[in-house]
Simulated scan of single mutants.
Amino acid sequence: MGVSGSLGVGRLTDAVADDGLGLLVGGLSETLVYGPGGERRGEGCRVFVSSYAPRPRMLVFGAIDFAAATARVGSFLGYRVTVCDARPVFATATRFPDADEVVTDWPHRYLAAEVAGGRVDGRTVVCVLTHDPKFDVPVLELALGLGVAYVGAMGSRRTHEDRLARLVEAGVREDELARLHSPIGLDLGARTPEETAVSIAAEIVSARWGGSGHALTETDGRIHHDA
């Protein structure tokens, strides 16, 4: 996704391009306001960004406490969030008020139906938080072959090794396994569900824009990455 043309001031053009690209990828339309030199200060030049794409989707499998926090931060990032779990006692709208929908179904069956219906695309992110091989292996086997933006799975190092062995046994290719973010999230030292959700969100953003995950004080060059 490139930039064509100019607004006459380099810093203003760069600011609009950076912000506009984020809105377009997120399927959002918004009026942006800048100062004459591209300052994001809410006065001066007004630019309307119109996006015709639907919001990207976040599919969260596993109706656990970490899923509630992940749904909350996913909604904050602009995703249309679905929480899915095969256990009706856990998959309730009351437990996940920030989700756009809560579905009771086996994860792999629900994902297959969404794919068949054309409701999964290259911007979709998949977070598998089930901690149970009978749920997470089938859905990961399917998700890793779809070409979605991100596939992450929660679990300890031991759980990860066991999961990899099961996926290999199921016939998942090495290049597909390389796309799996597991254990899920960036190394922030997170402990609570909310902190863990932030680490997951940070990894998703990094994967979207090609970020390194390092502190900006440790990097050089432009802060904003191209798509």
Rank of each mutant, 00 (worst) to 15 (best):
D105Q: 08
A165C: 01
E39K: 11
G221M: 07
A197P: 01
P193K: 13
V83G: 00
H214W: 07
A201I: 10
R109H: 09
G74V: 05
G62Y: 02
G189T: 07
G147D: 09
T92Y: 06
L7T: 05
D162Y: 04
P56T: 09
V126I: 15
P107N: 09
R57G: 03
G10C: 00
G78R: 05
S156T: 13
M58I: 04
D18A: 15
L32C: 07
G10Y: 11
G37A: 15
V205S: 05
L186V: 13
V9H: 10
C127M: 08
A207I: 04
E114K: 14
P133K: 11
T13S: 14
A67F: 01
L24G: 04
P133N: 12
E203Y: 03
D175V: 04
Y110C: 03
H224Y: 12
P36H: 09
H108C: 04
D136P: 02
D65H: 13
M1I: 09
R72T: 14
Y110R: 13
G35H: 05
D100H: 15
R57V: 05
G62P: 02
T159D: 05
V16N: 06
S199Y: 06
P56E: 09
R119N: 11
V151M: 11
V89K: 07
R158C: 00
R179S: 12
R119Y: 02
R95F: 02
H160Y: 12
P138H: 14
Y79C: 08
G210F: 06
M1F: 08
D220R: 15
H224I: 12
T82I: 02
G118E: 08
F61N: 01
V128Q: 13
D100E: 13
S206T: 10
H181G: 02
D14A: 15
P138F: 11
L188F: 14
V25G: 09
R123Y: 01
E161H: 12
C45M: 12
G2T: 11
R163A: 01
S212G: 14
G42Y: 11
V47D: 03
V81Q: 05
G117I: 00
G37R: 14
V198C: 04
K134A: 14
L180A: 09
A86V: 01
V49H: 06
S156W: 06
V33R: 15
V33D: 09
T94M: 08
G2N: 13
D121V: 00
D132V: 01
D105G: 00
V198D: 02
G152N: 06
G22M: 04
D19L: 05
E43G: 04
V9G: 01
G118P: 02
D98C: 10
W209K: 10
L21S: 14
F61V: 03
G74Q: 07
G152K: 07
H181Y: 12
V89M: 06
V172I: 11
E101D: 13
L142F: 05
A68K: 15
G213P: 06
M154K: 08
P88R: 09
E39R: 12
F96G: 07
